[in-house]
Structure formats: structure tokens, C-alpha cells
Simulated scan of single mutants.
Amino acid sequence: MPDVQRAQVLAYRIAAHGLHRAGTDPAALAVLDLGVQDVGGRATASLAVAARTGSAALSLEDDERFTLAWTHRGAPHYHRASEFPGLLPALFPVDDADALARLGWRPAEAEAAGMPAREILLTAARSLRKAVGHAMTKGAASAAVTRLVPDALSRWCRGCQATHIHEQLMRLAAPLAGLALVPGASPATLVPVPGRPRIPAEADVPGATGTVQCYLRLHGPATAGEAAGFVGSTRAIVAGQLWPGDLAEVRVEGRTAHLPADRLAELEHPPEPDLVRLLPPGDPYLQARDRALLVPEKARQQELWRVLGNPGALLADGEIAGTWRAKASGRRLEITVDPFRPLPRSVRARVEAEAELVAAVRGQDKVAVRWPGS
């Protein structure tokens, strides 16, 4: 079993994520094989694309080649529109235990509903398909579908001060019902996708396995538990039913992990990560579940991955070297960088250049970078 160093793993992932900027077409980016998460209101998906293409002219939000929908873990992700119909069966749980894990429900909750967990998901999907025949805000769609589903599928919501369909159930059922999200809409707005595909009758196990394989390709070497964390299931289900074949086993930092065997040579000899990037909150690179490998210091992890309001990450020479936040004032953007360690002047100059790209993506004419003490 080969032993690989942490620096090799990070360099491999940086290359696998396309952060060396080898191409300019967002549809060709490897991260779109898994999907690019959208953190609403901050152009994060377009910033993730710009970090990989170096261009501010390419926007997932305005490109009809991409579909935004609640997919992995019920979070909004952009996917290639041509691949979206085929993704839906791969999102359907392989069994009732998988459905409970993805919903975050206890078995007693499914028993109270009087139906198996996968049937709960199908019931919600059928009701959503009936309720949402045109663009509807999330609130309106929730109210409409709540009137159709059995009472046991609804919950009292303290924030809304109302009873409505369980939030995660609605998020997981919406894509199965052929519903996407309108990019940039506030509040969140659901809309039927063109040619509205049928609700999957059963799980696409090879497709779901392909999702796990893609995770291992982008975020590997990784474990079954880490892949399960991304898709929203359990380690036992991923390892027992969705684990790909033809994987290479390696040892990283004293633990065993896997990646596709055809990527082993790239892992052993990755290109030097001599680059500086301002990664947005929710960037695909930050979606790896082994956060301690990305950022070993616990306190720094807490700065980067918060419950709400995550900052962006400064990637410099193979390491996450700090965080950044942006504040707009008219046509001017101010980016505040909080480095984890002192940075050479050359790195700071490259951060300033990347800040210009961030401002261009966000539509601001001027940008100022603020450093500690400035």
C-alpha cells in the first residue's frame, strides 16, 4: 500500500479541481461532474468558475447549459442541464435506511407516517409535481404541497409560525418531481425543468456509485464515511452498496483511504500548486469531508466552516492560508483578507490580482483589499 504525504494529496486535489486554469469552458470543468454548490446572493457559483477559468465573463447563473436544483444533501447545486434528468434516479435512495439517513429522520418518524421511508419521499415528489406546474416561490410551493401530503409529513415550524411539509423532505423530493430553482431568485423559486422527466421508480445504483466515484476522484484519497458525508447517507450504505470497484488503496497520515486506480499516478506525481486563488464560500474544493487534512488547526477550521455565514478561503501555494470576505458599496468592492500566517509580498500581490477578478464577477468597477492592520 503506497504511503502519500498530505502535501501530495492537496496538490493532487488542486489539479483535479481544475485550479491550474487549463481551460475556459465552464461546462468542461471537472467539478461540474459532481456539481457546484450555490450559496445564495453572493455569486458563489460564478466565483468558483472564475477561480478555475480566470475569466469573469462566464456565469453559471446566466448560462442555459446549467440547471440549479436541490440535489446533494438537499443543498442547491448547479449541474449540466443535459445530465440533470439522468442524475435524478441516482439521487433516489437505494433502500429505506438510506432514505432515513438522507432525510435525517428516526425510524419512529417513518413509522408514525405509516409508510416506508422511500414511499414517504415518493409521496412528497408526486404531490410536488401536482402542486408546482409553473414558477412558484418556495413558500407558495410549500403551502400548496402541504395541502396535498398526509399530515404526518408536515411539521410545526417555529420560524414560519406555521405547519408545513418537512423542509428536508421537500428539498429531496423537489428534483425527483422534476423541479429546479430559478438562479438568482429571492425568495427561492421552484420551476419545472423543460421536458419534465418522470419521477424515478427505483434507485439507479450504478449512477449513485458513479457519484461516489466522482467524489473520490475530486476529493480523494478518501474514505467511505467521507463520501457518505457528501451524499448525505451513512458509511455503511456507501461501503456496502455504493462503493466503486477498481480503486487504489493508499495510506495518508496514518489512515487508509481510496481513489480511482487510474488516478494513482497523478496522486504520486501531482503538479506543483504554485498558485493563488480566492475561493468563494461553498467552493467545491472546500466540500471535502476530511477538513482536518485541508486545515489541520481546529481553530482555523472553525473560522472557515461556520454554521452560518462562511467566509471565502485564500488558497496559496497548496495551502488554505486564510479567509476573506467581501463588502460592496455601490460599484466598489472591499475585500478583507485574514491570513493564517504572514504572507510574502509576492503572494499579497497575487491576491490583489485575484481580487480584481472577484470584483469583475460581482459587477463592481473598483476593488480595495484590506489586510490586518491596514
Results as ranks from 00 to 15, higher is better:
D3V: 15
V9F: 11
I14L: 05
G18C: 02
P26R: 02
L29V: 05
L29H: 01
L34I: 00
G41F: 13
R42V: 13
A56S: 15
A57N: 02
W70D: 01
G74M: 14
L88C: 08
L91Q: 10
D96A: 07
A99V: 06
G104H: 11
W105C: 14
P107F: 10
E111P: 05
R118H: 07
I120S: 12
I120E: 07
R129I: 08
A135C: 05
K138L: 06
D151Q: 15
L153S: 08
C160M: 12
L169Q: 03
P175T: 08
P175N: 03
G178A: 08
A180V: 12
A185C: 12
P187K: 07
R196Y: 02
R198M: 09
D204K: 03
G207V: 11
H219T: 06
G225S: 11
A227S: 13
V231A: 01
P244V: 10
A248M: 07
A265K: 11
P270I: 06
P271M: 01
P271A: 03
P284F: 04
Y285T: 00
Q287I: 01
R289A: 14
R300I: 07
A326N: 06
A328F: 00
R345H: 10
R350S: 06
A353S: 14
A359V: 02
D365Q: 13
V369H: 11
W371I: 05
